[in-house]
Amino acid sequence: MLSVKGLRANVGENEILKGLDLEVGPGEVHAIMGPNGSGKSTLAHVLSGREGYEVTAGSVTFEGQDLLALEPEERAQRGLFLAFQYPVELPGVNNTYFLKAALNSVRKSRGEDELDAVSFLRLIKEKLKILHLDDSLLKRSVNAGFSGGEKKRNEIFQMALLEPKLAILDETDSGLDIDALRVVADGVNALRSPERSMIVVTHYQRLLDYIEPDHVHVLAKGRIIRSGGKELALELEEKGYGWVVEEERAA
């Protein structure tokens, strides 16, 4: 599904990703952990096509296609989704209107018809329920004045609506209270399917208790320095990142 090979990327003069490899198969859930500033969000941004990053080496293919050659909206239309670490506010842009435009753009590129107003409303009401979100959010501007937790839940709500093939969740758990974490995790689990893959970036084992990953990777200094099963996350939780980084250095 997704194949990242030897990816190097700069921000300005600084090289942030330094030869990163990652293979994600259909239906797999990969957790990426790693110290602050190690490049996790950078990876998410490069994969989703944000400007300001210069890819200097390596390749990314998504379903056999050169992902890096596509515009961000084309990537989204082909089924890539990023749940932002810091969701962006769009004052004045009505949430319902935004969701409808996004959904229709994605549907169009899948060769499906635009949804009429009634079916659309039915659909969003249903998805709202899954995320325990209040109807009133639909009348508000996108993310404007949302609490931190509401913003994060809204990201997963959008994901539920857009039904991507590959979702990247960048620290969706941070800023959530314990109940909200559970709701979000349930929402994510409801979306797990043999066709849908996920990359879950997190600092905490807690999220992975709910969303069980197939693979866990440690990203440090711009590279994946260790990969393992879900037990790796437990080990990290217990011992921190220090030992992995040490072992890597020694090797």
Binding site: R75, P87, V88, L90
Partner: peptide, 14 residues
């Protein structure tokens, strides 16, 4: 902002 544009584009909008 670039952030706003990118946010919209990452949802499939031009």
């Amino acid at each position: 902002s670039e952030d706003q544009l990118f946010y919209c584009r990452s949802r499939g909008l031009t």
